[in-house]
Design a protein around this nucleic acid. Structure first.
Length: 552
RNA sequence: AGGGUUAUCGCCAAGCGGUAAGGCACAGGAUUUUGAUUCCUGCAUUCGAAGGUUCGAAUCCUUCUAGCCCUGCCA
């Protein structure tokens, strides 16, 4: 996936400089997710950034699982992450697990102890908090801060052997309890956790903390540019301290950028997990989820997501990208690809009274107006068709130029029809309309004597295939002021999914497979769902509606 | 004695002392067998504010203001 990041950004400039000054001959980046959930579109930004930089500068990019906290991690997540990265179109040079470096990390911890730069601390979490100080007051040294290297070596060994319970002891780096940067106030670098790890099983009962593990992971892999999000800016001094004091051969450079925020989108792994755990959604791949798996099932394409990530840019300014931008790149990508087909979501029966009963003819329709190579197909047409309810108005409003009594419109690919009669049920609802057609107006015949101001889509009533259409709205209405302060589960839009039973023309879908994309005239872009699909009853997810639908 | 960081159009975002790119959104107009698409056109005398340096400042200096992050044995 080369040159999709074309625009300039500050990280690129740093890399160019590092290459030009000879600091590096080759750059190596990495994407380091913790396997504690599925990837979402925010991760896609990081993936595109890291892999994009790697390929643009002909360097390397690793996929590394930052699995240092066994209680939150699972192999289900590592598998899904691998799949999603591949689906997005990227290939990693090396695949690693932080947990495979546990031995080296432990050795580094021993080194720190020997250098007098780490100590075992017996403070309870509450005491620890107290000793840490506050944002405006310095911390005070732990009473265990001056234990001898010998004693610390003995204690860490016994911690490793499992002689202590969870939380009883920790290993801390000895840095500066009065630092204005709280991360430097003797941060914990190892904690005890008697938990089974998805990769190392029960081999370990002490696990390194992120601040200690991450720089070591990067350094071991020779990462030149360690790209992370803004909230780690305060951690950089600690990152550099660890690399230096652990005497790593390679000194990766941490660079922070602003994480992706998008309007109407929940971009928090924790909240997304909650939606799954509390069964608010169908699973991580629910089409309403902003997860990569959800977007895929909804019908988004890797190309559109990549283009989006490259166009939104990379900076350090907190920002919220308008989700309309993603929609735009989706339409742009799908427009020439997805064949145009006819589907009627809310059917209204039209009887063409002067069309011979029992007669059927095949109408030739182009598959994609933008791409002639996609050819044409034959669609059955007969005396009774379904049109969209909104394409008929008994009493037309101003500027309405679709069907109404006395008006003539074209049925796409077929004939002009004129509405003569409106049939209603006992309650006065329109249930059927009667029209006449003009045989001379057949599509392609060159008829020019009269013009119509509208063309509407239709499906043949006897040949139409029932189908289900799922329309989606954002799960969360984060723009609504009345939602402010509410627990996020109470902000869930109860109408985030609308299920509509309608009809599709039979022809275009004979060989439809899950994830095939279609453009339904006037309704937008749809994909065949990966579930709930059987031979004669397809379920379509609406990926994105047309830019602006018919506003009256 | 808190520290870090950000601020360019409604939303993203280039710009790095030589006189404000681009995209999204929006608004007009043209074409259209779907009011979509496509196609033109318009859209920051101004860069958070105020001073200063300079022939020249979004870019340099000073002060101020606002937002975001940091007090997990999470990452």
């Amino acid at each position: 996936m080369s040159n999709e990041i074309n625009s300039s950004n500050f990280i690129k400039n740093i890399i160019i400089n590092d290459l030009e000054t000879g600091k590096h001959q080759e750059i190596i980046t990495r994407f380091p997710p913790e396997p504690n959930g599925y990837l979402h579109v925010g991760h896609a930004k990081s993936i595109c950034l890291n892999f994009g930089l790697g390929s643009e500068f002909k360097g390397k990019t690793n996929l590394r699982f930052d699995d240092t906290n066994p209680i939150k991690e699972d192999t289900e997540y590592v598998e899904s992450i691998k799949e999603d990265v591949k689906w997005l179109g990227f290939e990693w040079d090396e695949l690693h697990f932080a947990s495979n470096y546990f031995d080296q990390m432990y050795d580094s911890a021993l080194l720190l102890i020997k250098k007098g730069l780490a100590y075992v601390c017996d403070l309870t979490p509450e005491e620890m908090r107290e000793y840490r100080g506050t944002l405006t007051e310095p911390g005070k040294p732990s009473p265990y801060r001056d234990r001898s290297a010998e004693e610390n070596l003995d204690l860490i060994e016994r911690m490793k052997k499992g002689e202590f319970k969870d939380g009883e002891k920790v290993l801390r780096a000895k840095i500066d309890m009065s630092s204005s940067n709280i991360n430097m106030r003797d941060p914990i670098i190892y904690r005890i956790s008697h938990a089974v790890h998805h990769n190392t099983g029960d081999a370990w009962c002490i696990y390194p903390m992120y601040d200690f593990a991450h720089p070591i992971e990067d350094a071991i892999e020779g990462i030149t540019h360690s790209i992370c999000t803004l909230e780690f800016e305060d951690h950089r001094p600690l990152y550099d301290w660890i690399v230096r004091e652990c005497e790593m051969k390679c000194a990766p450079r941490q660079i922070e950028f602003a994480r992706l925020n998008m309007t109407n989108t929940v971009m928090s792994k924790r909240k997304l997990k909650q939606l799954v755990d509390e069964a608010v959604v169908d699973g991580w791949d629910d089409p309403r989820m902003p997860t990569v798996a959800g977007l895929r099932r909804r019908g988004y394409t890797p190309e559109a997501i990549r283009k989006f990530c490259s166009e939104i840019g990379v900076s350090k300014a907190d920002s919220t990208v308008d989700s309309q931008m993603l929609d735009f790149f989706l339409r742009e990508d799908l427009q020439p690809k997805a064949p145009l087909a006819m589907a009627v979501l809310r059917p209204l029966k039209v009887v063409i009274t002067n069309y011979p009963e029992g007669q059927t003819e095949m109408i030739e329709v182009e598959n994609n107006a933008k791409d002639e190579e996609q050819g044409t197909r034959l669609v059955p047409f007969g005396r009774e068709v379904y049109i969209e309810q909104e394409d008929f108005m008994e009493e037309p409003v101003k500027k309405y130029f679709r069907l109404f009594p006395g008006n003539e419109v074209r049925l796409k690919g077929a004939y002009f029809i004129k509405c003569n009669e409106v049939i209603k049920d006992a309650d006065g609802h329109v249930i059927e309309i009667h029209c006449t057609y003009d045989p001379e107006t057949k599509s392609g015949s060159g008829f020019t004597a009269r013009k119509v101001k509208a063309t509407i889509h239709w499906v043949d009533a006897s040949a139409a295939v029932p189908a289900e259409f799922r329309l989606y709205d954002p799960l969360i209405l984060d723009d609504a002021p009345e939602n402010e302060g509410k627990h996020f589960l109470e902000q869930i839009n109860p109408n985030s999914m609308e299920i509509i039973k309608g009809y599709i023309e039979p022809t275009a879908f004979k060989d439809a497979k899950p994830l095939d994309k279609f453009q339904f005239v006037r309704h937008g872009f749809f994909t065949v769902d990966t579930k709930y699909t059987c031979d004669d009853h397809l379920v379509f997810n609406r990926i994105v509606p047309l830019k602006s639908s018919f506003k009256l």
